[in-house]
């Protein structure tokens, strides 16, 4: 078994991202969709970190830290939105949220 290469890490990243997209496409529970988005963000962070390791350049780590900060902001606002929606509509099922449907 050879040591893992850049391609191994990128493959893991692609598969994780795919898993996240499948979660967003198939689930109805808004919270689980939210978690799938977090998985996708993490997949991208993994790709950043592996390229950073490959290039021996720490700038990739700075980008991952920015990405984590944006994810934290997104989590706070997203969950506050969920609470606001739940308070007004008594649901977290995205199929019930069709006010903008023509």
């Amino acid at each position: 078994m050879t040591p893992p290469t850049l391609n191994h890490y990128l493959l893991v990243s692609v598969l994780l991202f795919g898993t996240g997209v499948v979660g967003v496409v198939t689930r109805r529970n808004a919270i689980v969709i939210f978690m799938s988005i977090e998985i996708m963000l993490n997949a991208v962070n993994l790709a950043f970190a592996s390229f950073s390791r490959y290039l021996g350049d720490g700038a990739g780590h700075a980008f991952v830290i920015f990405s984590i900060a944006v994810a934290a902001a997104e989590a706070a606002v997203g969950l506050a939105l969920l609470i606001a929606i739940y308070r007004n509509r008594q649901t977290a099922d995205i199929e019930d949220l069709d006010l903008l449907k023509g």
Binding site: P3, T5, L6, N7, H8, L11, V14
Partner: peptide, 8 residues
């Protein structure tokens, strides 16, 4: 991604 592995 799987084509021609690039080592670290």
């Amino acid at each position: 991604v799987s084509e021609s592995p690039i080592g670290f």
